[in-house]
Design a protein around this nucleic acid. Structure first.
Lengths: 243, 243
DNA sequence: CGGCTGCTTGAATAGAGTCAATAAACGTGG
DNA sequence: CCACGTTTATTGACTCTATTCAAGCAGCCG
């Protein structure tokens, strides 16, 4: 795969200068494969690098004392594996759900960007803010919505994220997750996730064939999920001009 | 109150240059009072300013379609009311729990900082990352821990945060929250919060006198809460030198 | 004093978890 | 390509945690 995945993600939002493009491509020069099921980072690992996911699907998660896992985020190509700028040790773990390729660069590169390509620095840190806002939505979901709503929200969210980089994803997509993983993301047990999927299918809001999910009634699904689309409404106009 | 609240917060972490100090004081020049119960920002308000809380206690929250509220964060002096850098409209609401004073500055000031005081820009955006990590801990709490654990975690967290700027806070502190507010933060009903507080008190883990809470057994409280202290372990060493 | 708002407690209910057993799908080595 | 072991999905029965509803009380403010 050629070019910067991060740039491709930004592509729609903002016009990059040639120098910025070049700088981003340099960031993603050093590739590293991560096999399915393998850990890229474990909690408390010392952390000096920042990663950009180039291919595949990963998760970040926290483990609690009692062994429970909370999945924080599903990671797709172009995502910055963040939360690593200012912590000496990783506050969360990152693992590959499928065979993946990540690009790695040193934290010191960020220091250089901050001075030489300040606008790029702002764009990269902006992804942290977007991630933060996504977490607030998830928090409201876990704290204040029903099991069915949370499962519906997860389905819609994953579908929308996959659609951003895969044109073949329309109403129908392959949800590459076990029900236990869905449970660990939504704060439910795998058993209860199964029941919620069944209910959604019984009501024809979704259709299931194996691990393929088809959105039967998008409007109803979004209403059940209390889904808020944050992808529009970004404002980068205040940024200083590109270099 | 003199000087920058944000600088005071950073004070322990990092040595600021005189120029940086001056720039921060300038940020907090324009003060605005917010009366108890008043909204500083509502969801979807157009957003061109960034705020730093100088005095008092605020909350940020989301409202769901069904009227439910999820409190995202309790805000204390020195906190940046963030999530506002790149969104044209506020993704969350901010309201004063007590009489407050905030400092306001325009988003364009951030653009200037990015170029003229890049290290300060990095420090301010770093608070977004810290906030993001705090949200991951809360998410794991809501998704994977019991009601009692969540209430315990809230008590410990508020106590620790208050202690950072108020020397009088030790084991004992005044929790200026209604049980409904605690519920909206922990994803519980006010009734159940009451029961959990009662259990903690019955077990002598905390003592309650009116709205004053005293931590009776910090170790047990931290264990019940599955509390993780993230305040240590920050690494700013990679930042470029101060100007 | 009176009217809120918030706290407390009990009883009944509902939503999600646990346990268990079976079936289906997947992956691996031969 | 098949056989076998393992992981994942499904479903039922039962349990338990947290919610709902309701009633009484305490404290505070005008």
């Amino acid at each position: 795969m050629l070019g910067s995945c991060f740039a491709r993600r930004l592509g729609n939002q903002i016009a990059l200068s040639p120098a910025e493009r070049a700088a981003l491509e340099q960031l993603e020069e050093r590739e590293r494969p991560v096999r399915r099921g393998m850990a890229l980072v474990r909690e408390r690992d010392p952390l000096g690098e920042i990663f950009i996911l180039r291919r595949g699907m990963m998760i970040s998660y926290l483990l609690l004392d009692d062994g429970n896992r909370q999945i924080l985020r599903f990671l797709f190509p172009g995502d910055v594996l963040a939360a690593s700028l200012i912590y000496a040790h990783s506050p969360e773990a990152v693992t590959a759900l499928t065979d993946c390729v990540v690009a790695a660069f040193d934290r010191s590169v960020m220091a250089r960007l901050l001075v030489e390509q300040p606008r790029l620095y702002a764009l990269i840190t902006a992804t942290i803010e977007m991630d933060r806002v996504a977490l607030t939505d998830r928090l409201a979901g876990l704290g204040r919505t029903s099991a069915k709503s949370r499962v519906a929200a997860l389905l819609l969210d994953i579908r929308n994220r996959m659609r951003e980089f895969d044109d073949r994803v329309g109403a129908s997509f392959v949800l590459g997750l076990t029900q236990e993983e869905i449970g660990d993301a939504t704060g439910l047990t795998a058993v209860h996730v199964n029941r919620m999927l069944r209910e959604l299918a019984d009501e024809r809001v979704i259709l299931r064939e194996g691990s393929r999910v088809t959105v039967g009634n998008e409007e109803v699904l979004a209403r059940i999920a209390q889904y808020v689309d944050r992808r529009a409404g970004l404002d980068f106009s205040w940024l200083p001009p590109a270099r």
